[in-house]
Write a protein that binds this DNA or RNA. Structure first.
Lengths: 241, 241
DNA sequence: AACTGTGAATCTATTCACAGCT
DNA sequence: AGCTGTGAATAGATTCACAGTT
């Protein structure tokens, strides 16, 4: 019927009562699933990213040791949460002392895959594309836009910095040649699904989508959405309260 | 006390027994807290936003009735989740039939505060600012950028469409004059906290922040972050698996 | 004395499963 | 017959609290 064990915990005061023990039901088997899968939840990963940025900043300032509560305070989290997150990395901290900033940084980088270079294709050479292109944070992290695609013939053939804007028809060719695994979609919503399909069929395995509305991709492709309208509408809802 | 605890493992034989149903006693009193607070969780609100967009689209296509599973399929959610979300709005559906698209749309709009116009200030007239400014989805939803601020003297005094780019020093003045409650931050990270502080002290109550890294605001101000680097790093992590 | 690492507890979100309406 | 609305069940994420380490 049920294949999961349940653990029931009770202390001596409950032994007197018939039903009381049943009140302290604890469903276990919760923890320890990431361990087998070798993957942590997305939420934890995105905090890893925050931790990394923070740690790199304080490393610049000469800090080489940090405690969970300092990290928590800086990033508006709680200390236990920071410890729990970092414990996913293994036993890193030194009890009574804190964490070694350097070791943390290099571990986080390794886990996040930031030691290697990721060639990225950007689809959409509009304002948003330009903003993403000019955002230096990507390059600093190893994400390098190797080609830009659009279908506007006025843009095709021109360059941004030294990166050519190509016809979208050359997407597959480029993705294969440069071994691109990440695509960024910055086109209007009506074109988004089509672009996603092309990226997928070209062999891209991870997509960052900036166009509003849902697009769908096969299960083995990771899709990350950034939906600005939704964010604004959440604010609007807040202001209505 | 702690030492007296016993762990007992119940397997399926137990769950076949008469006592099993009693376990249920424990886990109640969970639901029904949002109702008093009159607010739903952020996650639900952001799905409201998705529902609304989808419903408006199908309304265009002449659909006036929709079921939870249709919505779920279109938005890659589950049917029970859609029903649960919509049930927060009250009893809207018709059993055996589905939901009236029109009524849903107008209720969602009301809840999300999209019946009124929201004047918005945009701080940062770079590429990202330009992308946000030119994104027509905002205006369609009642978010109107009434002023743009920057500190670059080359930009100050120029206009985008008919909206002037002003010196950041005139922020408070504008916010007060136009009753602005929402601010969008699209400046480099090193300037973000300072801009946030100015927005807050000018009276803005909700901030959409596009610059990477955490900024902090008082409790009564709603902050929504869009952190592109983190999204990309999550993809990178995925690709490492 | 100060901090980590982690079971257990709690809190939050999602899904199941079905009574009840049309 | 088909769908909603919702208690109950499950899953997931966060926090508490403290044993253990330096």
């Amino acid at each position: 019927m049920r294949n999961k064990e349940r653990h029931i915990i009770f202390d001596e005061t409950f032994f007197g009562s018939r039903l009381a023990p049943l009140l302290v039901v604890v469903f276990t088997a919760q923890m320890g699933s990431w361990r087998e899968k070798g993957r942590f939840p997305d939420k934890v990963v995105s905090r890893f990213s925050l931790y990394l940025r923070y740690l790199e900043r304080i490393e610049q300032e000469g800090v080489y040791l940090i405690t969970s509560s300092q990290v928590a305070q800086a990033l508006q989290l709680t200390a236990p949460q920071v410890r729990r997150d970092l414990s996913y990395l293994g036993q890193f901290g030194v009890a009574g002392v804190g964490y070694n900033v350097n070791r943390l940084i290099s571990t986080l980088k390794k886990i996040l895959g930031l030691n290697k270079k990721w060639p990225v294709v950007l689809v959409g050479a509009g304002n948003l594309g330009a903003a993403l292109f000019s955002y230096s944070g990507f390059r600093r992290r190893g994400f390098e836009i190797v080609a830009i695609f659009d279908r506007d013939t006025n843009k095709i053939g021109t360059r941004w910095a030294d990166i050519a804007i190509l016809d979208i028809d050359r997407l597959t060719e480029t993705v294969n040649q440069k071994g691109v695994k990440i695509g960024v979609i910055a086109v209007p919503h009506y074109a988004a699904q089509q672009v996603a399909d092309r990226l997928v069929s070209s062999g891209v395995k991870a997509i960052l989508n900036f166009s509003p509305g849902k697009i769908s991709v096969p299960e083995d492709v990771k899709l990350q959405n950034v939906d600005v309208t939704t964010e604004l509408e959440t604010l609007s809802w807040f202001l209505m309260q």
